[in-house]
Design a protein around this nucleic acid. Sequence first.
RNA 1: GGGUAGGUGGCGGAAUUGGUAUACGCGCAUGGCUUAGAACCAUGUCCCGCGAGGGUUGCGAGUUCAAGUCUCGCCCUACCCACCA
Length: 844
Amino acid sequence: MAKSEYDPKTIESKWQDRWDKQNLHKTSDGKKGKDNEFILVEFAYPSGDLHVGHWYAFSVMDIYARFKRMQGKNVLFPMGFDAFGLPAENAAIKNKQNPRKWTYENINYMRKQLRSMGAMFDWSREVVTSDPEYYKWTQWLFLKLFENNLAYQAETTVNWCPSCKTVLANEQVTGGHCERCGHEVEQRKMKQWQLRITDYADRLISDLEKLDWPEPIKDSQKNWIGKSEGAEISFKLKASSFKLPVVKVFTTRPDTIFGTTYLVLSPEKALEIIQGNKELARPNDLGRPVGRGITNKEEIESYIKKAKGKTELERQENKEKTGVEIKGVKAVNPANKEEIPVWVADYVLGGYGTGAIMAVPAHDERDFGFAKKFDLKIKPVIIPGNKQVLNTLIPEGLPEPDDNNYKSALFILLGRLAESPTALEGRLVNSGKFNGRDSREVIPEITKFVGGERKTTYKMRDWVISRQRYWGCPIPIIHCNKCRAVPVSEKDLPVILPDIEDYLPTGDGKSPLAKVTNWVNVKCPKCGSEAKRETDTFDTFIDSSWYFLRYTDPNNEKEFASKEKMKAWIPVDFYSGGAEHTTMHLLYSRFFHKALHDLGLVNEPEPYVCRMNRGLILGPDGNKMSKSKGNVVNPDDYVERLGADTVRTYLAFIGPYNEVGSYPWSPDSIIGVRRFLERVWKLKDHLEPKANDEVETKLHETIKSITEILRSLKINTAVSFLMEFVNKAEKSGVNKNQYETLLKLLAPFSPHITEEIWHDIGNEGSIHEEKWPEFDPKKIEKSEVTIVVQVNGKNRGVISAKAGIDEESVKSLAIALPEIKKWIESGEVKRVFYVKNRLINIVL
RNA sequence: GGGUAGGUGGCGGAAUUGGUAUACGCGCAUGGCUUAGAACCAUGUCCCGCGAGGGUUGCGAGUUCAAGUCUCGCCCUACCCACCA
């Protein structure tokens, strides 16, 4: 055993080669006496370069997977590429490259980089979503949804990104901008393929209860789905000489209906009504266009035109309310038969609820703002039940309302309420026979009274899945004039994405594939007449909605995955990924899985038992890494300079992995980890023949702590426990046995250096196939404990004593201490609190 | 405006869940080895005070023998969502 320098570069590539040759990371579908454990990390997007974020995502989870494997689990830890989609295509176009060529070159390069991490990925199960062997099954699964009416094509208002020249799903628009390119998104009416995710809204919420997920993730999914329960209530419209249709409004607060002082229609809804659209507003008895009762039609039409021209961004930036009254028309409040004005305003959204609201300015801030601006009536109908709120509304000096002054107090109260609305609960006033009732309790009764219907609405919309872009999975549908949308027959799958020269997005609402006439023109599979292929491609999130299923059976040519293999691995035991996917991929794939479950294609209703969102690595300056800020850390440089083991262990050490924190990369701190590994390395030349008892105790404490901590992924403290042990070992000496245990504990973090030393000190076989050390509870039982002595809750001294010592003995030992004596002399001991083996507090 | 998570040294962060606050690492300081460096070694490092001692977990109150941890009020930060009735 020769003394040598720690040289990670040589060691790391040496072991990576050997592990490959030994097939060390190949996972079988079941091992005798071992439980299967599926540990999943969101697969890589082939953006071209492995950045620190990838390292953080994969290498820390690799530590966890290795830990589980050493603990005796049969661990599946696969890797693949989410290779289709906008970002790859946009990047390829920017680099004037064919998207296919660009993507596959990136994948090859990234595979190499991923290898340098020394992760235990089972590459034999690799999945690439743009491979026909994979997307054949994406198409097949889609057709199952289509056949069962879970996929449909419909004309709706959709998000259109003029820069990416395609539609986007709601989830892919943030703050009115395209999630991918950042361009402003427009609203367009287009016929698009959609999936009925809204049918699953309730189950997507209720099944969250079954999952072992952090509450914040559940909350934001619930929030996104946005369930709200309320009622639809009809308001009759009235004009001097014409009957007009009924308008339905959606409200969560039917209890406030007596306070409705006007009605507001969204521009979309108003258009339907003034044009006499039959769908939502029935034509009047005379069959005449309903718009005839309206006296300022031009004004309204020009307002609607303007409002619809606004982009999302303009709406958001300009919260100043605008609107126009529909003159000559009144609505009848069904609660009190009052005639109230009808307005059009774009603060009411066309796509939510019924696209029309009853405005209650006294109890809704938005309505209040609008009423103030246009000088509309404000009528309070609830007085606060909350005393505090009540008191802020009563002028000082006025006694609290009692029977005598009730009327005057109420009068003042209502005046105040009309001046500034408060979202309230309390007692109803101005509400006819419901006066005095509790506002919440009365909701069902009032709803019934006005002929309303209980109704639940969701913010979430159906998932728009077609894209007018080249680089995606073709939608396996053939359009025939007679038979309409016909599925491609199973034997003809996959519909191969043709190689084309002219792949640039066209912007005319059609995919570039539409120009490939010899591909587009086909015979109808049903009737055999001339037909055309669907030319849109799938949203990438379709590809990623089921990739984890394919990992269980990646080479199956007959099925997307066999039931048997899925039974062995699904549901995923642990899923780690980015927080940005909480309301995208994570929601989509839960839905997708549920749909497949309903069709009997998968066994489980939920795909992921346990989910954790990881945090973010920031640049050294504390800002999000970006090329423009020049703070991008290239992990390859650090691997080259300090070694992969150092980078992996540093990323584990940087902060807790079980929280969505953001941690700045510190070029200084990482050196501390390298020093630590150097010290582990040097220790091998200084092994003692005999075990030191203190070191032995520390070792077993370390085993215990690390085992507990790794389970919860508070992995940063695991590294510090290892450091503490090495500090101790350097001071007091370790023997070979203890050192080997240390190496095993360190092996998941730093697989190369530990393997090298493991062999260097005379072991055969891989350290990674060793069993995880177990601690001996007897060895961590302390014979001596340090007990803190407090006087009146302040630390005044410590005593050492035998573990398990009783209160009386501790008390007399404590009182005997000189530094305690002087405190006690000044008073009489009244009470004593003793926490076993830890603390005694003497209260004077 | 809504939801969620947080505020602990110069910095990243610990704290057995109510029991010695600042573990571990970085940085810094002093000394050493070295021609020189530091990715080396040793010691020190929350603040005030010469000292006994006192103070300290965003601010203010409260509960408790004991509070970073529990309760209430306020302030601030980050992320996600946002005219969703």
